[in-house]
Write a protein that binds this DNA or RNA. Structure first.
Lengths: 214, 214
DNA sequence: CCTCGCACTAAGCGTCTGCTTACAATGGTG
DNA sequence: CACCATTGTAAGCAGACGCTTAGTGCGAGG
């Protein structure tokens, strides 16, 4: 189980039992999918009776929402953080990809739920996370558009390019596992390079600093 | 509904009713997911009683398997066809991406089931489609490795590069819809260009022929 | 020591699930 | 026309589902 690794997640979820339920939910949802997971599964994995779930969450869907929302907020924060600390489009997009990919690899269990169990959310809750997703996509698209305007990126359509960049990151959650040949950080670095080339950045552009000598 | 477009799928499924059930299954599985779809949903969408499903398929899982297997065979055939008709690694990878992406866009309903409902298959049936998936990945990886050996591709690891290329194609099924701004064919062309740059092909390499003048 | 509130459990509710059974309509073949 | 395989239906079974209810253990406050 990857529970031990995920234990450092959600450091501030109020009752310890609620966090255990979220952890159990993540594992179950990621492995079997939301609809194939029963409240009895989750409760048993958390070492409790099925009714205990309803002490902390009004419904099974609310548990999914808590997980999904928290995960989306983390990835949004990640992207916003890079944009806040960097100004060069090349550095921005490389670091966004590095962090985004590394997160989807390291947290691939949570990421699987975040990216692929969206449709199971009730309409109202779905709208909340959909808004978070739009913000993430918007930021990436704007960074690419800015780089294209500066002439450092060569893309015919920032919309398509942003989709492609995010696709590379999202899809990592689908196939990555602990027995992958690369660490999350190493994979992020490699994908960062791939994306820069995809966006038409020539290697002869050392940007502001950090020559990244091998 | 996208049923009318999908109607040209499976031209050779024996009884017409079985095809209608598969069509209804594809739509339902893609929209709500396998586990959230009931046999009553499928039967109703096909205009039949729930028991009719069991005249043509031994179980709900068998219906999913028929859909998944057929879809995987189509994408494999697509990739094999390109490799059989082209010899240059650059042309091969560009056409593979073009066709793979276009298929995942045009058939995004089927593709969604094919790519994201795998885990719902029983173990034995899963192994069958997993073998097909391995063959697809293998071909793409070999083409990239060959291009890298020839010096036309610049990749540090063909495994990672193949994963990235397939990720771009697979993820199209997740976000593409009829109201996308690009036709499947146009998207395929654009992604083909992105992938070539990602693999380090310089635009100054016109390969054997086909200048692709715009 | 009593009392209250909170976290939790045992048991079970109404409903829905995949699937089966018993039977009817249809159409090709002798 | 008799026969039967094929293709469908109506009704329902056994089990599992999300969630509720009634009640228990226990630590904090008076």
């Amino acid at each position: 189980m990857t529970t031990s690794l995920s234990a450092e997640l959600w450091p501030d979820v109020q009752p310890e039992t609620a966090r255990r339920l979220m952890l159990a939910g993540v594992d179950a949802f990621a492995q079997r999918g939301y609809h194939a997971t029963t409240t009895r599964d989750i409760a048993a994995a958390a070492g409790m009776s099925p009714a205990a779930l309803y002490v902390h969450f009004p419904s099974k869907a609310a548990l999914l929402f808590a997980i999904s929302r928290y995960g989306h907020e983390q990835t949004l924060a990640l992207v916003e953080n890079v944009v806040a600390n960097e100004s060069d489009p090349v550095a921005r997009i490389r670091l966004v990809v590095e962090d985004f990919v590394a997160w989807h690899a390291r947290r691939h269990t949570v990421a699987r739920v975040v990216q692929y169990e969206l449709q199971a959310l009730p309409e109202q809750e779905f709208e909340v996370v959909a808004a978070l997703r739009r913000r993430i996509e918007r930021i990436v698209r704007d960074v690419i558009a800015e780089g294209a305007a500066d002439g450092v990126f060569t893309v015919s359509d920032p919309h398509v390019a942003a989709r492609a960049v995010l696709s590379l990151g999202v899809d990592v959650a689908r196939w990555y596992s602990e027995r992958a040949r690369q660490t999350p950080a190493a994979l992020g670095k490699e994908y960062g390079g791939l994306v820069l080339r995809m966006l038409g950045v020539t290697p002869e552009t050392p940007s502001t600093g950090s020559p990244d000598s091998a």
